[in-house]
């Protein structure tokens, strides 16, 4: 009762990184709240899940193992979670802000009338005073995310409804094993008690899931382009620089919206979070939603023709100039001086 739940995403029997990251966060919050960390795995052939997640400090693993639960469809996974949450009354529930988590989370929150905050960049525990209602609350989940309207961050709470639900993107939290020998308990659910036949109306006819060809998350060097890059032509310069340096190309949302780069390359609160050795921000102003996804880069170089661009505040080097001019020079002098 009143524990922390994480919904596990599983592909081919492997628990996804985002779920392990959420377990790590969940474990530390559970320690703070003095409660248990529980996880739910729904799918088929889940024998290997326990050994993958217990080292992250899972106290109870609920297994819903049924052929019909794989691949994921919305209704049966919703029914499972809703019923399980009604029985177990968790205080907090996390899911990845993935295509699955963003399909499932809102349905569950709608059924249970519990608040859901998307794309949190930080999660903490704290108190809250509702002055209007004259009530104070202890130990609420602070769901922290950049808000639209400038460089502002909003802290969201769900004072009265349980569970307090949040989604987090892959890479935002760090995964960390707490104890390779951690002992948790496995509870097998009788799936037919949780889902009905009517939940299986949507059929998956075909499915091609590829390993992403892009590997922005683990690239040591990222050359990221923003709206200031201006054209697809200019974006090619970024690809060239990235290729020469052995890095990947990233983009701001404005660049993605303008069709200069693929969505997969978006870095930021609603894109990928990266921590490269070197981040070269080209024509990026540095709004908080973007910074949220790259601020932990070891070194940042900004190329911007506006000396007052906000990104300059967090950059180690600010090259004041036009990318059309600066990038070819970087390529030229890199080639000239490297071995």
């Amino acid at each position: 009762m009143n524990n922390i739940f994480v919904y596990l995403e599983i592909e081919d029997g492997i628990v996804s990184d985002v779920s392990l990251e959420l377990l790590t966060k969940g474990r530390s919050l559970a320690n703070e709240l003095n409660c248990k960390l529980e996880a739910l795995a729904a799918g088929y052939g889940l024998d290997q899940v326990g050994q993958q997640v217990f080292p992250y400090g899972v106290d109870v693993l609920h297994l819903a193992d049924d052929k019909r639960l794989e691949p994921y469809t919305s209704l049966p996974h919703t029914s499972l979670l809703v019923k399980l949450f009604q029985e177990e009354k968790p205080q907090i529930a996390f899911m990845g802000a993935t295509t699955i988590g963003r399909d499932l989370g809102p349905r569950v929150s709608s059924a249970l009338f519990s608040g859901l905050t998307a794309d949190c960049t930080s999660l903490e525990i704290g108190g809250y005073e509702d002055r209007k209602a004259g009530k104070t609350y202890e130990n609420l989940l602070f769901q922290i995310r950049p808000a639209f309207g400038g460089n502002i961050v909003a802290t969201i709470v769900n004072p009265d409804c349980r569970p307090q639900m949040a989604t987090v993107r892959e890479g935002v939290m760090k995964k960390e094993i707490v104890d390779p020998a951690y002992k948790g308990e496995t509870r097998k659910l009788k799936v037919s008690d949780y889902v009905s036949d009517a939940d299986f109306v949507v059929e998956v006819i075909e499915r091609h899931i590829e390993k992403s060809k892009l590997n922005i998350k683990s690239a040591p060097i990222i050359v990221a382009g923003g709206y200031g890059v201006g054209s697809v032509e200019n974006f090619k310069l970024l690809h060239e620089l990235a290729a020469v340096l052995g890095g990947e190309v990233g983009a701001s949302r404005a660049a993605v919206d303008a069709g200069l780069a693929e969505h997969e390359r978006q870095i930021g609160q609603t894109g990928v979070t990266v921590r490269p050795k070197l981040y070269i921000a080209c024509g990026i102003s540095g709004q908080i939603q973007h910074i949220a996804g790259m601020q932990e880069s070891a070194m940042v170089i900004s190329i911007n023709n506006d000396p007052r661009a906000p990104i300059n505040a967090i950059a180690d080097y600010n090259i004041i100039g036009n990318i059309e001019e600066v990038i070819p020079k970087m390529i030229k002098y890199y080639k000239k001086n490297s071995k």
Partner: peptide
């Protein structure tokens, strides 16, 4: 069910950054 507890203005603590020109 979700309430905004607070809004904070984020001031990025400026790194010791070097400003460079674009000359060769």
């Amino acid at each position: 069910p979700t309430k905004v507890k607070s809004i904070q203005n984020v001031v990025f603590t400026a790194k010791e950054s070097k400003t460079l020109d674009a000359s060769d």
